[in-house]
């Protein structure tokens, strides 16, 4: 029983980290209509910055710098590339982001090389025990910070002018601009927010039990795509729900791998999220909490 509980807690805390990344996908998508395939690289970039900077300035300041750095990268991608796209449709933008991803990931891979960088997180490899159940401290901190992050997002979107403006812009950009809302500004804010969330997620994706900062992190950030799709493309709460479901699914599938191997083979934990995603796309293309697309021609 405690093994099961441990898997569940593991899955939920991992799911919260995924939901940070998924929320980044959702925010960028709603504010600029871009499927940000470079998001994984930005996550990696955040973790990389922390790994490089923590020996000199300490972990927490390094995290702050990483948040700012990732936000800046996002804003720059939007301002320098996305806005200048000649053919503005979601498909072309997605392919553009694949190009950006290749460049970013290649450069980061070159810098990291074959090494696995350490993060210098203060919680190291310690473990917290709740009765029989033990959980990496990093995951507990992650869960706490994620909850704080989402509370802040909720406040932003429902209580501040900027947030209401962003929602208006996402719902109907041209009309929102008739209200005096500058779409370039809401878009930049969206990219910056996604960057901040990516940096936080990057730290928790690479701290214990993960070995450290390595290029493969960008790929594991891909696992957040099913979480995003599952929750609904334009919904931040959806990203949380999706993240939790995907985290739980992959933790349980991995945790009970030996029992399942006869049916689905080994390593199914990596694939299960995508299977769930395709099923959800078929049954409910707008995701669990996403807004329905208009049916009028």
């Amino acid at each position: 029983m405690s093994y099961f509980l441990e898997q569940v807690l593991n899955g939920l805390s991992y799911g919260l980290v995924l939901s940070l990344i998924a929320a980044g996908f959702a925010i960028v998508f709603t504010s600029t209509g871009v499927l940000n395939f470079a998001h994984g690289s930005i996550v990696l970039f955040g973790a990389y910055l922390v790994a490089v900077l923590h020996p000199t300035i300490g972990f927490w300041p390094a995290l702050l710098v990483a948040m700012a750095g990732c936000a800046l990268v996002g804003v720059a991608i939007n301002a320098l590339l996305v806005r200048h796209l000649a053919d503005k449709n979601a498909g072309t933008a997605a392919i553009l982001m694949l190009g950006v991803d290749i460049v970013l990931l290649t450069e980061l891979t070159r810098r990291i090389g074959n090494k696995v960088l350490t993060l210098g997180a203060p919680w190291g490899a310690s473990v917290v025990r709740f009765g029989d159940v033990s959980l990496p401290t990093g995951r507990v901190v992650a869960a706490g910070l994620t909850v704080v992050a989402f509370a802040a997002l909720w406040y932003l979107f429902s209580r501040t002018d900027l947030g209401v403006g962003m929602r208006a812009a996402a719902a109907d950009g041209p009309t929102a601009s008739l209200m005096g809302i500058r779409l370039s500004r809401t878009a930049a804010t969206g990219w910056a927010l996604a960057g901040v969330l990516a940096a936080v997620a990057g730290v928790f994706l690479t701290s214990f039990p993960a070995p450290g900062v390595a290029p493969t992190v960008a790929l594991s950030a891909f696992a957040a795509i099913p979480a995003w799709v599952l929750g609904g493309f334009d919904s931040v709460p959806g990203a949380v729900v999706g993240g939790l479901i995907i985290g739980l699914t992959s933790a349980l599938v991995t945790g009970y791998e030996s029992d399942l191997a006869g049916v689905v083979g080994t390593g199914f934990g990596e694939v299960a999220p995508y299977v769930v995603m395709i099923v959800v796309l078929l049954v409910r293309p707008s995701g669990l909490l996403g807004s329905k697309e208009a049916v009028r021609v």
């Binding site: 002018d161 209401v164 403006g165 929602r167 208006a168 719902a171 929102a176 209200m179 005096g180 807004s291």
Partner: peptide
Amino acid sequence: RRIFRDLSVEDNLRAGGYT
């Protein structure tokens, strides 16, 4: 009209007063 359908009446007005 082009009102923001998913936003409440109040948030619609708030968006209008953005400036």
